[in-house]
Nucleic acid binder design. Structure first.
Length: 590
RNA sequence: GACCUCGUAGCUCAGCUGGAUAGAGCAACUGCCUUCUAAGCAGUAGGUCAUAGGUUCGAAUCCUAUCGGGGUCGCCA
């Protein structure tokens, strides 16, 4: 049992015994650095039961704990705060119990539940940008965090491979492409298709301008420009299964997929299941029928199907067009059922930007109203947009931060910083290349994951991502530093009996280590890798403090030396495990 | 206009299921390498937690209003 839990239980006993009151929950906090102690219990809420002054109430509990043999060195009382100083023995025992567990920090029991994490879900008309990077990193990390908490996880990618957007690229390629391919142009497939998406937009804009100059209203011009009409015609041709259109569609999508594959691989993300919207876009119509039969939905005279959510504070929402064709929501209803049928998922997480909050609120509500048992397990992991200094990314204005470019820049920056420090003598070229890549990706991933997913974040391309301070490279540095110590220490220290007393920095490291299981659990419950980032930083900082204040290899007292090396070893395990959940690979040397 | 969301140091972010004098990193300034990795450590300076009320023994945290940023309200996805 965790030490905090032991103390909390004792306090519960004390309160029951002393004040004849059973507290609902006993919450211990970390003691403020300005006071002596490891844990603090706030007694103010107990005063109406103890009928004593805060100081007396706190002292009474402290005395009780001491008399019952709680693992305390001492306690002190400041106003209504009972500060508990734990003894070294419990922490040494904690170290002993956990140091050889390679899975330290992860939950040891299986929940028996399956969770699907749907993330990435790109459109196939353009390459991935910074916004997608946040989505991918979050999705991958949350999936790994769920695994570490004992869930069976299925990672899914629902690729939006059909619709007007890809038709625009196809049309522009047909008109202006002169048969260009990734092979003939040397351009990565997704970027090539993206190029024609931009090309379409350019010509489309020009047509609109011409029409407006000829006296047409802007709105009418947007609807009647020849190119957009032609793109819509192409979509109809695709839907009717025209062989030429389908062939072109397949070819251009295949270019995109080979491009995406490279980007995903470099990002270090992967998927267990890939859904294509071209397969799923017709799903959901039977649910429309079901909803009508159950009187959850209603039909308007024109044939369109709606749901009335005004009682829930929302409004009426269209579920099926009057011509009987699907909308976004129709497909999502069907896909939700599909996911459940195929994988029996109890929990279904959608990693999608917060601009779709409303959509998911409605989707989940509909599933609940239809009586789906899995509805309670649906969750929208709604993350904030990545803003640039001047606002949103806009492809038309060329302010999009491309994912491939960004990763390459990170690699270059890592290389430059490493060369400046000059600590890589004797490393082979392939090793160096791997080091730069890992460092660059660690910097990028940590930078993005350390901010609360719910919040929008700012990315300034002018100021490069830091490699110092609260960063990925800082955590990797701490890890590499430990590897260096352990390598030099050899194996013999493992035979020595470690000391039985703790110095302040040593105790602090164990205490931070002991918080890892709770951090992993918290990251899961709040769907937030940021929690783990902050844990990594806390641990790395407390270890570096120890490193600077005390010695390892130079320590002559073999017991102390052995203890510190144990601490170093366990810290490196904890860092490696935490980073793994963030999708960050460690380096042995940097 | 309605609804959702955010507002903490010059900048980027923690803290938000109410608890002690509000924390980090970057940037600025001081110290610490005859080397257990200085991508580090220690320190100085920097705050009316948007504003105004309210609830409470106690509010950055909960409630209300106002101001400011962002988002959503399509037979788009």
């Amino acid at each position: 049992m965790e030490i905090e839990q032991v103390l909390a239980n004792s306090i519960r006993e004390a309160v029951k015994e002393l004040f004849q009151h059973e507290p609902e929950e006993v919450k211990l906090e970390e003691t403020n650095a300005d006071f002596a102690g490891d844990f603090t219990y706030v007694v103010f809420p107990l005063l109406r039961f103890s009928k004593k002054k805060p100081e007396e109430t706190a002292s009474a509990i402290g005395d009780y704990l001491t008399s019952k043999g709680a693992p305390l060195e001492s306690f002190n009382v400041v106003k209504g705060f009972l500060n508990l100083v734990t003894n070294d023995t419990v922490w040494l025992q904690y170290l002993k119990d956990n140091q050889h567990n390679p899975k330290f920090g992860f939950s040891s029991n299986q929940t028996g539940s399956t969770v699907m994490v749907e993330y990435s879900s790109p459109n196939t008309n353009k390459p991935l940008h910074l916004g997608h990077v946040r989505n991918n990193l979050l999705g991958y990390s949350v999936a790994e965090i769920m695994k570490a908490n004992g869930f069976e996880v299925v990672k899914a990618n629902l690729i939006n491979d059909r619709g007007i957007h890809i038709c625009k690229s196809m049309l522009a390629w047909k008109k202006f492409g002169n048969g260009e391919t990734p092979e003939t142009s040397g351009i990565k497939g997704d970027h090539l298709v993206g190029k024609y998406y931009v090309e379409f937009d350019k010509h489309y804009k020009a047509e609109i301008d011409t029409l407006v100059a000829g006296g047409m209203e802007q709105e009418a011009a947007e609807k009647n420009a020849p190119l957009i009409l032609e793109a819509q015609e192409m979509l109809r041709s695709w839907e009717s299964g025209n062989p030429d259109t389908i062939a072109l569609w397949q070819e251009m999508n295949s270019w995109v997929y080979s491009g995406f594959e490279l980007t995903y691989h470099r990002l270090g993300v992967n998927f267990d299941v890939i859904y294509h919207e071209s397969d799923t876009y017709k799903l959901g119509k039977d649910i429309i029928t079901e909803g009508l039969n159950k009187n959850v939905f209603f039909q308007k005279p024109d044939g369109s199907v709606w749901i009335d959510l005004t009682e829930e504070g929302l409004d009426q929402k269209l579920l099926l067009r009057s011509d009987g064709t699907s909308v976004y929501m129709t497909q999502d209803l069907g896909t939700a059922d599909l996911k459940y049928q195929q994988h029996k998922v109890q929990i279904s997480i959608y990693v999608v930007g917060n601009e779709q909050d409303y959509h998911f609120k409605v989707l989940f509500l509909i599933m609940k109203k239809l009586g789906r048992e899995y509805a309670a397990g649906m969750h929208h992991l709604s993350y904030g947009m990545v803003d640039l200094p001047h606002g949103k990314m806009k492809s038309r204005e060329g302010t999009v931060v491309d994912a491939d470019d960004l990763m390459q820049e990170m690699h270059e920056t890592a290389k430059q910083k490493t060369l400046e420090l000059g600590k890589t003598e004797g490393m082979q070229n392939f090793e160096l290349n791997e080091l730069y890549e890992k460092l660059g990706m660690a910097a990028l991933k940590f930078y993005i994951l350390k901010v609360d997913p719910k919040k929008r974040m700012l990315f300034n391309p002018q100021e490069s991502i830091d490699f110092q301070g609260d960063t990925g490279p800082f955590v990797l540095y701490t890890y590499a530093r430990i590897q260096s110590i352990l390598k030099q220490a050899g194996e013999s220290w493992k035979l020595e009996q470690p000391g039985d007393t703790l110095m302040a920095p040593e105790k602090e490291v164990i205490q931070v280590l002991s918080r890892m299981p709770a951090a992993v659990e918290d990251a899961c419950k709040s769907y937030s890798p940021a929690v783990l980032c902050h844990f990594c930083l806390d641990l790395a900082k407390s270890f570096n403090r120890l490193y600077n204040e005390l010695t390892f290899l130079k320590e002559t007292d073999v017991q102390k030396r052995s203890l510190r090396l144990q601490l170093a070893e366990m810290t490196s395990t904890a860092l490696k495990n935490s980073l793994q959940l963030l999708g960050i690979e460690v380096v042995e040397r940097m």
